[in-house]
Amino acid sequence: MMIRQNQRSFTAGQIMATSDVLQQIPEYEVQRALARHLSGDWGDCCLEDSGANEEALQSGGRLFSVYHTADGIKFWIITEADRSATTVLLPENY
């Protein structure tokens, strides 16, 4: 998947989700979070991880975002450093 290029956008590679995500999180919430992640909105991650993501956009490192559903379920989105894959997962799936 490729999105419109700007200074914060990047290629997602193959997008995958764990079975727990597919069972517990509505698809529209996953899609909304993916759009945020791919536009450089790191969600609720800490300042340290947010800073690391900003550096990774330049250096090609791993990108990590944290989101919460309307029901309060925490989930992560991780894009690999080589941009070959982006995975949506629950913290306990890591």
Results as ranks from 00 to 15, higher is better:
Met1Ala: 15
Met2Tyr: 14
Met2Ser: 15
Met2Asn: 15
Met2Arg: 15
Arg4Asp: 12
Gln5His: 14
Asn6Ser: 15
Asn6Phe: 11
Asn6Gln: 10
Gln7Asn: 11
Arg8Met: 11
Arg8Leu: 13
Ser9Arg: 11
Phe10Pro: 07
Phe10Thr: 03
Phe10Asp: 06
Phe10His: 12
Thr11Lys: 12
Thr11Cys: 09
Ala12Glu: 06
Ala12Asp: 02
Ala12Pro: 01
Gly13Lys: 04
Gly13Ser: 05
Gly13Asp: 04
Ala17Lys: 12
Thr18Glu: 02
Thr18Asn: 01
Asp20Ala: 15
Val21Asn: 04
Val21Glu: 04
Gln23Leu: 14
Ile25Trp: 09
Ile25Arg: 06
Pro26His: 09
Pro26Arg: 11
Glu27Gln: 14
Tyr28Arg: 14
Glu29Asp: 07
Glu29Asn: 10
Val30Trp: 03
Val30Asp: 04
Val30Thr: 07
Val30Ala: 03
Gln31Ala: 13
Ala33Thr: 06
Leu34Val: 03
Ala35Leu: 12
Ala35Arg: 11
Ala35Pro: 00
Arg36Thr: 01
His37Val: 01
His37Ala: 01
His37Cys: 02
Leu38Trp: 04
Leu38Val: 06
Leu38Ala: 12
Ser39Asn: 15
Ser39Glu: 13
Gly40Ile: 05
Gly40Leu: 10
Asp41Lys: 09
Trp42Pro: 08
Trp42Asn: 07
Gly43Ala: 03
Asp44Ser: 10
Asp44Gln: 14
Cys46Leu: 11
Cys46Ser: 15
Glu48Thr: 10
Asp49Gln: 11
Asp49Phe: 08
Ser50Met: 10
Gly51His: 12
Asn53Thr: 06
Asn53Ala: 07
Asn53Ile: 05
Glu54Ser: 08
Glu54Ile: 08
Ala56Ile: 03
Gln58Phe: 10
Ser59Phe: 14
Ser59Pro: 04
Gly60Ser: 08
Gly60Thr: 03
Gly60Arg: 07
Arg62Pro: 00
Arg62Ile: 07
Leu63Gly: 10
Phe64His: 15
Phe64Ile: 12
Ser65Phe: 04
Val66Pro: 02
Val66Phe: 03
Tyr67Cys: 05
Tyr67Arg: 04
Tyr67Asp: 06
Ala70Trp: 06
Asp71Gln: 15
Gly72Gln: 12
Gly72Leu: 13
Ile73Met: 12
Lys74Gln: 12
Lys74Pro: 00
Lys74Thr: 11
Trp76His: 13
Trp76Asp: 05
Trp76Met: 05
Trp76Lys: 06
Ile77Pro: 01
Ile77Lys: 01
Thr79Ile: 03
Glu80Pro: 05
Asp82His: 06
Arg83Tyr: 07
Ser84Leu: 04
Ser84Gly: 02
Ser84Thr: 04
Ala85Asp: 00
Ala85His: 02
Thr86Tyr: 00
Thr86Glu: 02
Thr86His: 00
Val88Asp: 00
Pro91Phe: 05
Pro91Ile: 02
Glu92Gly: 05
Glu92Ala: 13
Glu92Thr: 07
Glu92His: 15
